[in-house]
Measured scan of single mutants.
Amino acid sequence: LDITFHVDGKNIHVHGASEEVVRIIEELIKNNARAEEIKETLERLLR
């Protein structure tokens, strides 16, 4: 699975993920999660 995301100002662009995963990533970023935390969360979800 190949998910890429980047933050452009306040806009979060996520590619290669389901809508549910996109929402989770957006929440994590809004809550100022570190990249490592986001990665760990995604790995748990995608197991």
Rank of each mutant, 00 (worst) to 15 (best):
L1A: 08
L1W: 12
L1H: 10
L1F: 13
L1S: 09
L1T: 10
L1Y: 14
D2W: 14
D2P: 06
D2Q: 10
D2Y: 11
D2K: 11
D2T: 12
D2G: 09
I3K: 06
I3H: 12
I3P: 06
I3C: 06
T4G: 05
T4W: 12
T4D: 09
T4E: 10
T4Q: 07
T4F: 11
F5Y: 04
F5G: 02
H6V: 15
H6K: 10
H6F: 13
H6G: 04
V7I: 12
V7R: 01
V7S: 03
V7Q: 03
V7P: 03
V7L: 06
V7K: 02
V7T: 03
D8K: 04
D8M: 04
D8Q: 06
G9I: 00
G9Q: 02
G9F: 03
G9M: 02
G9K: 01
G9E: 03
G9P: 01
G9D: 05
G9W: 03
G9V: 00
G9Y: 02
K10G: 09
K10V: 15
K10I: 15
K10W: 15
K10R: 09
K10L: 15
N11W: 15
N11K: 12
N11F: 14
N11D: 15
N11A: 14
N11L: 13
N11Y: 15
N11E: 15
I12P: 00
I12K: 00
I12F: 15
I12S: 01
I12L: 08
I12W: 13
I12N: 01
I12E: 01
H13M: 08
H13G: 02
H13W: 06
H13N: 05
V14E: 00
V14T: 02
V14Y: 06
V14A: 08
V14M: 03
V14K: 00
V14F: 06
H15E: 06
H15P: 04
H15C: 06
H15T: 10
H15A: 06
H15K: 11
G16P: 01
G16N: 12
G16F: 07
G16W: 06
G16Y: 05
G16C: 03
G16M: 05
A17V: 14
A17K: 01
A17L: 08
A17M: 04
S18A: 05
S18P: 09
S18T: 14
S18Y: 04
S18D: 07
E19W: 15
E19T: 12
E19N: 10
E19C: 04
E19G: 08
E19R: 12
E19F: 14
E19K: 12
E20R: 07
E20V: 08
E20D: 11
E20I: 06
E20Y: 15
E20P: 05
E20G: 07
V21F: 09
V21K: 01
V21S: 04
V21P: 00
V21M: 10
V22A: 05
V22K: 06
V22T: 03
V22W: 10
V22I: 13
R23N: 07
R23L: 08
R23V: 05
R23W: 13
R23M: 09
R23G: 05
R23S: 08
R23A: 10
I24P: 00
I24M: 08
I24Q: 08
I24Y: 10
I25L: 05
I25E: 00
I25N: 00
I25Y: 02
I25S: 00
I25P: 00
I25H: 00
I25T: 01
I25G: 00
I25M: 05
I25D: 00
E26I: 14
E26N: 14
E26W: 15
E26V: 13
E27Q: 12
E27F: 15
E27R: 11
E27S: 11
E27A: 13
E27G: 10
L28W: 04
L28Y: 05
L28S: 02
L28D: 00
L28G: 01
L28I: 03
I29E: 00
I29G: 00
I29M: 06
I29T: 02
I29Y: 03
I29S: 01
K30N: 07
K30D: 05
K30Q: 10
K30S: 09
K30R: 13
K30F: 13
K30M: 11
K30H: 09
K30C: 06
K30T: 08
K30A: 11
N31G: 09
N31E: 07
N31F: 11
N31Y: 10
N31I: 07
N31K: 11
N32A: 07
N32R: 10
N32S: 10
N32K: 11
N32T: 05
N32Y: 12
A33W: 09
A33Y: 10
A33V: 10
A33Q: 05
A33M: 08
A33R: 09
R34C: 05
R34H: 11
R34I: 05
R34Y: 05
R34D: 10
R34T: 12
A35C: 07
A35V: 13
A35G: 09
A35W: 15
A35Q: 05
A35K: 05
A35R: 05
E36H: 12
E36I: 07
E36Y: 13
E36M: 09
E36A: 10
E36L: 09
E36C: 06
E36G: 08
E36T: 09
E36S: 10
E37S: 08
E37Q: 12
E37Y: 14
E37G: 03
E37T: 10
I38D: 02
I38Q: 01
I38K: 00
I38H: 01
I38R: 00
I38W: 05
K39M: 15
K39T: 14
K39E: 14
K39W: 15
K39I: 15
K39P: 01
K39Q: 14
K39Y: 15
K39S: 12
K39F: 15
E40F: 14
E40S: 12
E40L: 14
E40C: 07
E40I: 12
E40A: 13
E40N: 11
E40T: 12
T41D: 02
T41L: 09
T41N: 06
T41F: 09
T41I: 12
T41M: 12
T41P: 00
T41H: 08
L42N: 00
L42K: 00
L42V: 08
L42I: 12
L42G: 00
L42C: 02
E43L: 15
E43N: 14
E43I: 15
R44W: 14
R44Q: 08
R44K: 07
R44E: 05
R44A: 08
R44L: 10
L45S: 01
L45H: 03
L45D: 00
L45Q: 01
L45I: 08
L45N: 01
L46S: 04
L46Q: 04
L46Y: 08
L46R: 06
L46M: 12
R47N: 14
R47Y: 14
R47F: 14
R47E: 09
R47K: 11
